[in-house]
Amino acid sequence: MTPQTFFLIAMSLSLLNGMTSPATGLVFGLWPLWYPQVVTPVQELVYYGASLIVATATLLSAAIPAAIAERLGASEMATMVLWAAGTALLLVLSHA
């Protein structure tokens, strides 16, 4: 498998976490803080935005250990595996 495959795995897992995480409900409830006021708040758009926020936060949070490992000299393959594993760990922890 290539590093790009592990990146796609990390992206897919973060999108899955964005759709199913309990944090999505919290972000959905806080929609007046992040939703643009010039757009009419339709429930489907607010949920989609909340899901994207949680998915992006998952992907970025999982990238921190991978970035540290890369800075310490890990190979690109090891970094991508660590990124995908971190995303999977965050997915499991958000549902525990």
Rank of each mutant, 00 (worst) to 15 (best):
T20L: 13
A50N: 01
S14G: 10
I64T: 14
N17S: 08
L60I: 11
I64W: 13
I9W: 09
F7Q: 10
V39L: 15
T40L: 09
Y47L: 09
T40D: 12
A57C: 11
L45H: 02
I64K: 13
M11W: 03
F28V: 02
M19S: 15
T24Y: 05
A62T: 01
I68T: 13
G49T: 09
W31L: 03
Q37A: 14
E44G: 13
G25T: 03
I53W: 12
S21G: 03
L16C: 00
L45Q: 12
A23L: 15
L59C: 02
G25H: 01
S61C: 07
L26N: 05
P65E: 08
A57M: 10
G18S: 08
G18W: 10
V54H: 05
P32R: 13
G25A: 08
G29D: 14
L60C: 11
T40F: 14
V39P: 05
L15D: 01
L52W: 09
L16G: 04
Q37L: 02
G29P: 01
F28D: 09
P22F: 03
W34E: 07
N17E: 05
L15I: 04
V54E: 06
L59S: 07
T58L: 14
L60M: 14
T56A: 12
I64L: 12
L59K: 00
A55C: 01
P32N: 10
S51I: 08
L30S: 12
T56Y: 03
L52E: 03
V39R: 12
G18H: 09
S14K: 06
M11G: 07
L16N: 09
F6C: 04
A62G: 13
M11L: 15
V54S: 06
L8V: 10
S61R: 06
Y35W: 15
P22C: 07
V38F: 14
L15F: 14
I64G: 02
P32A: 13
T56D: 06
L13E: 10
S12A: 15
A50S: 10
L26V: 05
L8C: 03
I9H: 04
M19I: 05
N17P: 11
